[in-house]
Each structure stands twice: as structure tokens, then as C-alpha cells.
Nucleic acid binder design. Structure first.
Length: 912
RNA sequence: GCGAGGGUAGCUAAGCUUGGCUAAAAGUGCAGGACUUAAGAUUCUGUCCCUUAGGGGUUCGUGGGUUCAAAUCCCUCCCCUCGCACCA
């Protein structure tokens, strides 16, 4: 059995925790390094996919630690938002999927008999959050992360919420907060906003909000309201359709009597002010009248149609048979005396409704809808409005649409009407509609000064990979208003309006600052009951005007300490997260930082990783296709997972987690373990192969350091793990003694490996080196001092020689008994130097015949001064054993069998 | 549609910023040899095509261009992935 099982790993996890080596203290003599990753959202157990970011973060934290930094790698938990709330209520309602998902999650941490008991407590959202916060600590500990848990806090902690409220008051003073009308998804039955989590299949088939233009068609007594997403077709109208099944009501809309479907009335009343019910209507009242189109004031009639859905839009559809094949088909079906009007011209006449109508089955409604979508797209991107129309003649469709909409709205002929992109229900089966909030709170990210500052910061920051920098600049440009509070969910109440709860991404923008001094803040909260904004201002910003007489001595002392911690630690040196956060969380992170902080408190680097797939498929909770992190560390060991994450893929690319690849890595890892297990220190002078190994090791260490400094974690560990292992094999086949060779590099090797495989490194450090922790050793940062370039060159030369001999053997199919090798003599070397300088004329007449041979072989001739004869002699027995042939070496200046021995290119003769 | 990234040998995947050391790292798969009673593990060699002397030919989505020289720089086209918002 190999030694790196979960018990050994656990042993080191406990030792680290007990010794507190990952709980750094403020130390002015040491350079600090603060690295953060997003705090996990605590609605379930973490799976393999989540582990990537945290693992890479830990690898970097550990690397910085062994290269001399005072590293802080803190963690907290995110408990705000609606998913936890939705999960608890699904549990309460006995939702089978929710129960099975939670049961599975709990089972990763608990014995069978405890599961039901714990599950019962989870009808209370807070219990879900707290249970999975503790569980995540177990997850992370089992992965061996070097997290400082002593600073842990959550977004639900009272003192943290005081911090968030301070932040929002400050943002308000900066003019970044405003209230406006805003459309949201809404459930009238629950009288509440709904999010993706509340909608049935909301995660699979996303529901969005669409903006319709609802046009008023007037008559003497009342108007009809018909909603469309294509207002530019207004001049193609020939008639109106109402539903043959629906019911209609008359309502008062901005003082106008207007007829709409019963369902539309409900929606309008949630979207507009002053919508009043007048009375129910008979359809006849509508069908018997004639109505006028806006602007052109043409008289049109209303007909019933089966395809009209009373719960979609206003329940009234305006008919444009020239540009909607559905309308056209209905006109034909009913045999109405109506001529289509064509008002948009497109290049390809085959793509018009009238042409297409010849070739398809007009009674197949599904097919008609597909064709309609297709034609609609063609017209939108390629269509031009025909001449002779009011307002929009000759305009491209996309522009005409905006223009006519504005004209209609300004003239009082239309209004904006919101509709869901598909029919949607809540998980409890109630209808989802669009409601307009009159007083939605927004964070205003459109402010010029804010954008300018953010751009400047992004410019200065390091992005890995680099191209995300321009994405970030773009994102900052297009961000405008962000709704920053909701009427439901867990979280902090908005200080200026307690009914609202701060939206969960907006409450987590500058929170890393709290890691620096969370324990002091908690104490202040305990002592004072509430943390005064003035105190927070003093602690977190450089504006230090503190009204000292307002606070007790104790509070002032704590605040002072908190401020010192902030001064020392803050300024996140690296924040590491995955790319889906780029256009939201990370953008807010940057914008809020520049709004509130300045100078050294601003972040310096952002590392963005790709995601993990499982067997090539995206991991998702609902699919349940991601193994939990716990399972992985039990099944393979944490170090295998960590190594897999470190060498499996570059930062930006997707990493696939699959059995075959993991097992392949495990084999490699096991052979490494075996070498360390069998290691017994021996003494003695190094032979050639061992000297080469040591030099080569330090070349790999050099490349490891160079790569790690650039956060090329993958390349770094390919060098220090795979390539060193390969070297070790070669060293052995060349007569090197493994134990002697690795004995020379053991310390540096284990230290360098420790960021990726800390448990393994720690175990063998203690077995072979000493009692200190490898995790806090200092890496040899001057590997070049241990590289002997002559040894390396000699090796390259011998390798090239062997491969040349082999290729001659392969081509000639000769298995030689002896191989004669002729290296160049002094005179030829001299000649080669002259020729390389281009002085062809200086060559002695007798040797001019050699010039042509020189130019032909020039590529392989090298003048690095290597002692070829000696190099071959030194490796003679190795070469002989590999080739299974005797070697004879000589120096010559004259041709052998007509061939010339040049420096770096000896003549090789095979003898059977 | 807009924005970003990408297409490299059987597969995964590095190299491209700073053109030549690149028939192209590493891993995996496959073939043959060693070890073994055998299997596995380990290890060596090979793995685009041709070649009786270390050579030659054709390759890095497609088609052009720049250059003494292109996987690497510029342009055309084709294809794939991701983001486009209030959701953690």
C-alpha cells in the first residue's frame, strides 16, 4: 500500500492546523501577499468543478510562502440571495428533487442515521447556510488548503452587515445610488418577485423580459390595444385579430377607455399606474366596430382567430399579412377580402411572405411559426422600408423600428408593454408575469468619473491570461445601472430603505477588505452593539478624521488595531476566479473598489481560470454529474486531485475530469512515491550521470521558478514533476545511483513540489529531512548557481551521437559489432572556425576540398569548444551498453572513408 | 447581431507575444524489445511519408500575402466555444 492515503493526509492537515503556520500575523519586516478567491455560496456540497479555483489559489499561496512572502489566504462564506431561500421552501413543500439533492449532499459528510435529522432542520434557510458553511470547511481542509480560518466570517454576520450598510451609505454620498422604474419577473399569486430559482425549469429554459410596443387603435367609443415586437410593420396593417376563446374587458388606461384581454389587464395593472377596471365586454362590441390605425388613420376591421392567445401580450394582435405568414394564412383560411400590403423590401424575393406562402402548408401552425421567425430575422437584418411611408421611408428595419416606436409613444398612440419570453410558472404552479417596480434601487455604474477611474485601474492591473484585460475594459464601458436590491432573499437591509435587501452580488464587492480585520470588527460589534459608520470610515479609508470624543476608549483601541491590519494587508495582490465571473462580479469588484478605495488599497492582479467538465460534460447541480470534493479526496487523495488540477490544463482552458486521465496521473505519482519510499541516504562522489542529473534538476527548477512567477502553473509542474522524473530514469539507465542523485536535490525538490502536493512533500520532508514544516521552508531561488553547463552540453552531445548512430543503424539495417567514432582534430576545428567567419580565401590550398563538405553539414557543426573525445570516453560504457556494440574513438584531421569529422559532427563507421 | 477566445500529429494538449535552435514539449493511446512462469507494474525503442550511412519530402482549419526563412506576422473564407446583465 502506498503511503499517501487519506489518513496520512489528515495527519498533516491536523498538524498544520495545530501549529497555526497558515495564520500569519502582521509583520512589518516581511512583504505581505494577500490572495483571495470568491467565498463559496453555501447551498450544498462542493463538487470537483468548484475545486479548481480554490486549488489553484492554494498553489499560488503556497508558492508565495516558500518564496519569502507573508501570505494571507483567507476564506469566508456567502449566504446572501434567493437560492437558499428557494431551496428551503422547496423542502418545506416536499419537492422530491430538492430532498434527494440535499440528502445526497448531506450524505457526503454524515453517517446514514443523522441525515434525516439534519434534513428536517433545513426548512429554515439559515440552517442550510450554516450547515454547508461548516461542511465546506471540512471540504477545504480535506484538500489541504493553507487557509487562515481564524478570520472566517459570512455575509450574514451582523458586523459584516454593518460594513455593507456603511458601504452603501458611502456609495449614496458618492451619487452612485438611484431609484427608477424597472421591469422584473413577478408572481401575482405570491405578490413577489421571482428569480431563476423560483421558476419551474428556470435553470434549463431561461425566461427573459421582452419589450413590446402596444399600439392603440381608436374608435368613437374606445380603443383596442394590440402589442407587437415589430412596430415598424404598422403601415402594413390590414385588420386586427382577437381570440375566439378569450374574454375581454374595458379598462381605463391613462384616461382612455381601452379593451384588452382579461389576462392583459392583470399584467398592465402590475406594469402601469392608474389602470382601472371599467366593465366586462362582449366580443360583439369589438367585432362590430371599425377602428382607426394611428398616423395614417385607415379604417380597419376586427376578426376572430384561433391562433390568438389571450394570455400572450394584450390578447389582441394586429394583422400584417404582407410580413407575417401566420396572418396571411389566416386571411386565406377565413376567405377575407383583404390585400396584403408590402412595406419592407429585401434583396432576395424568395424570402417574402407572399412567395413562401406558395410552397408551404398554410394549415400547419407550428411550421408557420418557424417560417415567421426566419422571415422576421431576414427582414430585421437586411430589410429596407419602402418609399412613400410616413416617418420611416427608406430606413433599415432596425432603425425604423426605434424611430416609429418613439413617434407612436410621443404621439400618445402607443405604450411600452413587457412580456415574458415564454409562458412561465413558479415551482408552485403560479403564473409568472412581468411587473414594473416604480422604485427599484440601482447602483449607477454609468458615471463618467467612475468609469475613468476603473479604466485607469484596469490598465495598471495584471491580468492572467492577459486578454481578459480588454474584456474587462469593454465590460466597464457597457455597464450602466445595476439593480442592487430586491424585495426578498437573505442578506443585508438597505440602510436608506429597510424594506429592501441588498442584492447578493452587490453585497460582495469589497468584502476582501474585511478579512484583514474581521476579528476586530466582531469585537467592536460585541462591545458597541452597532459599528458606527464613522468608525468604519476611520478603519477602511485613509480619510482619518475621527471624532474621538464620540467613542469609548475600548472602541478606539480596537478601531486602531483594525486600521493597522487594514494598512498592512490590504490591497488584494491576487484575486483568482473563473471566467463566468468576469462580466459581473469582477467588474463590480473593480468599480466598487475604485469608488471607495484608492492607492495601495486597490487590487493589483486578477487571475481568471477556466472551468472543469466531467467526462466532457458541463457540471451542474441539477444533472448531479459532479463528484463531491470529499469523495474525490477519499477516492484518490487530495494530492492527486491537486496535481491533476495543477498540470491538467492551462489557466484559461477547460479542464476535463475523467477516470482514465486521473488514473494515468496516479500511476506517475505512485512511481514517484515509490522512489521516495525506497530512498536511503548514501554518501560518495557523483559520477557523470549523477552530476548531469543534478545540473539538469536545477535547470528544471529554474524554469519552474520562471513559470511560477508568471503563474504558468502547468508548465512549472511539468518541469519540476514530470521532467525531473524522466531525468531520474535516464540517470539510472546511464549508471547513476538514484539515491545519491536525489539526495543532492531532495530538499529543493520537496520544497518546490509542496505547493501542488503538500501532504506528500510534508510526509517525505519529515521522513528524510527534518522536523520543520516543508510548507514554510524557503526555496532556493538561485538554481543557476548549481548548473554546470559543460555537463549539460556534454550530455546533449552524447544524446545526439547515440541518436545519429541509431538512425544510421535503422537506415542501413546493420547491427554493428563495433562502432568507430572519429572526432575532429585541432586542424579541422581551426578550419571550421575560419569557415564560419566566412574567410574562404584564407584556406590552405590542400584543404580547399573540405569547403563544400563544410557548407553541406554546416547545420550540425558546432564550435562550443566541447571536448568531444573526452566526452565520449567518459560515457563509453554507457553508449556501449545501449547500443550493444564496442566503441572505438579516435581524433582525426584527415577524411575517413571520404568523410570529414567536424566539431560537433564526428564521423561514424559501423562494422558488422 | 455585438464582444471575446479558439481550430496543432490517433486523442488530450504546449509552442504563436519576441519568425530561424520545431517534424513540433508533455501526457495518453498504439507497435516492438527487456524484466516476469504469466498477467500487471516498471523500463527501453519507435509511432506523417520515403530512404542500405546520420538524408530527403509533405505538414500545424482554408486560400492568399510579407520574408532568405512562417505553426509563429498580415489579409480572405469556413468551423467551434463562451459572454450579452440583475443570477449565485
Amino acid at each position: 500500500m502506498l503511503s499517501m492515503d487519506q489518513y496520512t493526509e489528515k495527519k498533516w492537515q491536523e498538524a498544520w492546523s495545530k501549529s497555526k503556520i497558515f495564520q500569519p500575523a502582521l509583520d512589518k519586516n516581511k512583504k505581505k501577499f494577500l490572495i483571495t478567491v470568491p467565498w463559496p455560496y453555501t447551498n450544498g456540497s462542493l463538487h470537483v468543478g468548484h475545486g479548481r479555483t480554490y486549488t489553484l489559489g492554494d498553489v499560488i499561496a503556497r508558492y508565495k510562502r516558500i518564496t519569502g512572502y507573508n501570505v494571507l489566504f483567507p476564506m469566508g462564506f456567502h449566504q446572501s440571495g434567493t437560492p437558499i431561500l428557494a431551496l428551503a421552501s422547496r423542502l418545506r413543500n416536499g419537492d422530491v428533487k430538492a430532498i434527494s439533492q440535499l440528502t445526497r449532499d448531506i450524505a457526503t459528510y454524515e453517517p446514514e442515521q443523522n441525515i434525516q435529522k439534519i434534513l428536517k432542520t433545513m426548512v429554515e434557510p439559515k440552517n442550510i447556510a450554516d450547515y454547508f458553511s461548516d461542511a465546506t470547511v471540512k471540504d477545504f481542509s480535506s484538500m489541504g488548503y493553507s487557509i487562515d480560518w481564524s478570520r472566517r466570517f459570512t455575509s450574514a454576520d451582523d458586523f459584516y452587515q454593518d460594513f455593507v450598510r456603511w458601504q452603501f451609505l458611502k456609495l449614496q454620498r458618492l451619487g452612485m445610488i438611484r431609484q427608477e422604474r424597472y421591469p422584473i419577473l413577478f408572481s401575482p399569486a405570491e405578490n413577489n418577485a421571482v428569480g431563476e430559482d423560483d421558476i419551474s425549469d428556470g435553470d434549463i429554459d431561461k425566461v427573459s423580459i421582452e419589450e413590446f410596443t402596444a399600439v392603440k387603435f381608436r374608435s368613437e367609443d374606445f380603443s383596442l390595444l394590440a402589442a407587437s415586437i415589430r412596430p415598424e410593420t404598422i403601415f402594413g396593417i390590414t385588420n386586427l385579430w382577437i381570440s375566439s376563446a378569450g374574454n375581454y374587458v374595458l379598462i381605463d388606461l391613462d384616461g382612455d377607455p381601452v379593451a384588452v384581454s382579461t389576462e392583459a389587464y392583470t399584467k398592465l395593472s402590475y406594469q402601469r399606474d392608474g389602470v382601472k377596471f371599467i366593465r366586462e365586454m362582449e366580443k360583439r362590441e369589438i367585432l362590430d366596430r371599425e377602428f382607426y390605425t394611428p398616423i395614417e388613420r385607415l379604417k380597419i376591421k376586427v376578426h376572430e382567430a384561433d391562433f390568438v392567445n389571450p394570455s400572450n401580450g394584450s390578447g389582441i394582435v394586429y394583422s400584417v399579412p404582407g410580413h407575417s405568414i401566420i396572418d396571411y394564412a389566416e386571411v386565406i383560411r377565413q376567405g377575407l377580402d383583404i390585400q396584403p400590403r408590402v412595406i419592407i423590401s429585401i434583396e432576395n424575393p424568395a424570402d417574402t411572405v407572399l412567395q413562401r406562402a406558395h410552397s408551404i402548408d398554410l394549415s400547419n401552425y407550428g411550421k408557420l411559426r418557424d417560417v415567421n421567425v426566419e422571415l422576421y430575422r431576414t427582414e430585421y437584418y437586411g430589410g429596407i422600408m419602402v418609399e412613400g411611408l410616413p416617418v420611416i421611408s427608406g430606413e433599415p428595419v432596425a432603425i425604423a423600428r426605434e424611430k416609429i416606436r418613439e413617434t407612436l409613444i410621443e404621439g400618445g398612440d402607443a405604450l411600452i408593454f413587457y412580456e415574458t419570453s415564454r409562458q412561465a410558472e413558479t415551482r408552485t404552479g403560479d403564473r409568472v408575469i412581468v411587473a414594473v417596480l416604480k422604485d427599484q434601487w440601482f447602483l449607477d455604474y454609468s458615471l463618467e468619473w467612475l468609469k475613468t477611474k476603473a479604466h485607469e485601474l484596469v490598465d495598471r492591473m495584471q491580468f492572467v491570461p492577459d486578454h481578459y484585460k480588454s474584456s474587462m475594459q469593454e465590460t466597464i464601458d457597457w455597464l450602466k445601472q445595476r439593480p442592487c436590491a430586491r424585495l426578498r432573499g437573505l442578506g443585508t437591509h438597505l440602510p436608506m430603505d429597510e424594506r429592501w435587501i441588498i442584492e447578493s452580488l452587490s453585497d460582495s464587492t469589497i468584502y476582501p477588505a474585511v478579512y484583514t480585520n474581521s476579528n476586530y470588527l466582531r469585537k467592536i460589534k460585541d462591545v458597541a452593539g452597532e459599528i458606527d459608520p464613522g468608525i468604519l470610515e476611520y478603519i477602511f479609508t485613509d480619510a482619518s478624521a475621527l471624532e474621538k470624543n464620540r467613542y469609548s476608549e475600548e472602541i478606539l483601541k480596537l478601531a486602531n488595531e483594525a486600521r493597522k491590519e487594514m494598512e498592512y494587508w490590504y490591497g488584494v495582490d491576487v484575486r483568482l476566479t473563473s471566467y463566468p465571473h468576469l462580466t459581473n462580479h469582477l467588474a463590480f469588484y473593480i468599480l466598487n473598489h475604485v469608488a471607495i478605495f484608492s492607492g495601495s488599497y486597490l487590487p493589483s492582479a486578477l487571475i481568471i481560470s477556466g472551468i472543469i467538465t466531467a467526462d466532457g460534460r458541463k457540471i451542474s447541480k441539477s444533472k448531479g454529474n459532479g463528484e463531491s470534493l470529499m469523495t474525490v479526496s477519499r477516492k484518490y487523495s487530495a494530492d492527486i486531485y491537486r496535481l491533476y488540477v495543477a498540470v491538467g490544463a492551462d489557466f484559461s482552458s477547460t479542464l476535463d475530469w475523467n477516470e482514465a486521465d486521473v488514473n494515468a496521473l496516479k500511476k506517475r505519482y505512485d512511481s514517484f512515491i515509490q522512489i521516495l519510499d525506497n530512498y536511503r541516504p548514501i554518501n560518495g562522489d557523483l559520477n557523470g550521470a549523477e552530476k548531469w542529473f543534478v545540473s539538469s534538476f536545477y535547470m528544471h527548477l529554474k524554469s519552474y521558478i520562471e513559470n511560477m512567477e508568471k503563474y504558468n502553473i502547468r508548465s512549472a509542474f511539468v518541469s519540476i514533476f514530470y521532467e525531473v522524473l524522466n531525468d531520474l530514469r535516464r540517470c539510472e539507465t546511464r549508471g547513476g545511483r538514484t539515491d545519491l542523485a536525489i539526495g543532492k536535490v531532495m530538499k529543493d525538490w520537496l520544497i518546490a513540489l509542496s505547493p501542488a502536493i503538500p501532504h506528500t512533500a510534508e510526509e517525505y520532508w519529515h521522513r528524510h529531512i527534518g522536523d520543520s514544516f516543508v510548507s514554510i521552508q524557503q526555496l532556493n531561488l538561485q538554481p543557476e548557481l548549481s548548473i554546470d553547463t559543460v555537463v549539460i552540453e556534454e550530455d546533449n552531445y552524447v544524446q545526439k551521437l547515440i541518436s545519429d548512430i541509431r538512425s544510421i543503424m535503422a537506415v542501413t539495417k546493420i547491427t554493428p559489432k563495433t562502432v568507430e567514432i572519429y572526432t575532429s582534430g585541432k586542424e579541422t576545428a581551426e578550419l571550421a572556425r575560419t569557415l564560419t567567419g566566412g574567410d574562404y580565401g584564407k584556406v590552405d590550398k590542400a584543404r580547399r576540398f573540405m569547403i563544400q563538405d563544410f557548407t553541406r553539414n554546416r547545420k550540425s557543426i558546432s564550435l562550443n569548444g566541447l571536448e568531444e573525445y573526452a566526452a565520449i570516453e567518459a560515457n563509453k560504457s554507457f553508449i556501449e551498453s545501449i547500443l550493444g556494440a564496442k566503441i572505438e574513438v579516435r581524433r582525426v584531421d584527415d577524411p575517413v572513408n571520404g568523410k570529414i569529422a567536424w566539431p560537433g559532427r564526428p564521423v561514424i563507421v559501423l562494422n558488422k
